[in-house]
Design a binder for these strands. Structure first.
Lengths: 222, 222
DNA sequence: AGATATCCTGACCGAATGGTCAGTAACTTG
DNA sequence: CAAGTTACTGACCATTCGGTCAGGATATCT
């Protein structure tokens, strides 16, 4: 198994060596749009608000991005790319504890590193995933199926309890994503201004401990 | 401990015995608005769309609800009331397994019975909870604190592992809410049109099993 | 039946929406 | 420096937004 690498986000989206100005402005627009779309969803976000957030006139946003729709799908694609970057292959011979822990940890890091992107994705799904149907029913479904098969084999080998692998994946997704998507709730209840790195580390440890034990996976080396 | 009762939703919001027409139309509008707000968030939803969904002219919606804002907060309040209805008191002397299972089960039922309300709430939190700050930092925080204290005492008595009680509550919330909020993702990946009652029952059992075991809670009678 | 309160809605309002475009400014390269 | 590309933007457009209102339709009650 190749360890999940959460790549340092260099920001280099695509080559496009030319156009330093274009690069800088596009980056500003994308960052601003991610925040606004995450906060208000596709329909609720306005180009005016995005432009203001980016510190540019509205016309300039359209000059670079063409249309609201185009900007939105570009953001979704960027987030899916980040996601795909940590979807590594695993095999039946890997250690379940190691795989599950690295799964939880990398997913947690992704949500933490890109909270707005995470919320953008959540808003898209909440609204019925109008732009992501194909991705869900295609790539992502296949990936889940492949993982599920391996979990089942682990169960058969007695390396973990015979739990439904798909629901286990959903459990991990929901638990990790929660801290980005419901950040306002988490902060409001815990009375904090932000989650610190050590908070996140503690939560990751908690989730790893509970989920592994809950599935009957013996930590480290079977 | 009083078992969590998920009340049959009779729909009787408040008395208002008079005005049968008003009652009927308000109900239709609230149901329609819940769908639209859940799908598009507060800003993204339009009164036109809500009116169309309810089969009424836009003016009629405003006649009954006064304003978009008022309609929205009324829906939020209705959802919080449903939520509060299953926030029962527990004591240190209750059986942890029983409490946790009933907690998971009733939360799951709430999300299933009111998926649009659940998504409406999720969208509100996603957008930074502009209308629910007070609720989160008040009532809900107190409720979480009270529960957390009891979980800690259980841990001290050796009835469960010494896990952080607040993160345990968040884990249960996220895992149960996921099936309503991310329904589009769940259905897309599992290739289903809808989750059946037996699906939900199986998921509830799965979550109960994993979470209880993961926290070192021995099922049924310590 | 008549009076009264409730119900209903098309027309309208100013503001904001996503998007176009013509024209200008600023770089880059020969 | 001149030509050419890229960057920029204010003015404008049709449409939709939340909300108002006058006035008619309908129900309810004595």
């Amino acid at each position: 198994m190749t360890l999940c690498k959460v790549p340092q986000d260099t920001g280099e989206e695509k080559g496009e060596a030319n156009g330093a100005i274009r690069e800088r402005n596009e980056r500003a627009i994308l960052a601003a749009a991610e925040r606004i779309f995450a906060q208000h969803g596709f329909r609720g976000a306005s180009l005016q608000a995005i432009a203001h957030e980016a510190g540019l006139p509205k016309s300039n946003v359209l000059y670079y991005m063409g249309s609201k729709r185009g900007l939105y799908v570009r953001l979704l694609e960027r987030m899916m790319a980040r996601w795909n970057a940590l979807l590594d292959d695993i095999s039946v011979d890997d250690d379940p504890a190691e795989v599950l822990e690295s799964f939880i940890r990398s997913k947690m890091q992704l949500s933490r590193r890109h909270p707005e992107g995470s919320r953008l994705f959540a808003a898209e799904i909440l609204g019925g995933a109008p732009f992501l149907q194909d991705y869900l029913r295609g790539e992502l479904r296949d990936w889940v199926k492949a993982r599920a098969r391996i979990f089942e084999q682990w169960s058969a080998r007695g390396l973990m309890d015979p739990v439904d692998p798909v629901w286990l994946i959903f459990l991990i997704w929901s638990a990790t994503q929660h801290y980005a998507d419901f950040e306002a709730q988490v902060l409001g209840i815990t009375d904090k201004d932000a989650l610190t790195d050590s908070d996140v580390e503690a939560i990751t440890g908690f989730l790893t401990q509970v989920i592994l034990k809950g599935c009957g996976v013996t930590p480290r080396q079977a």
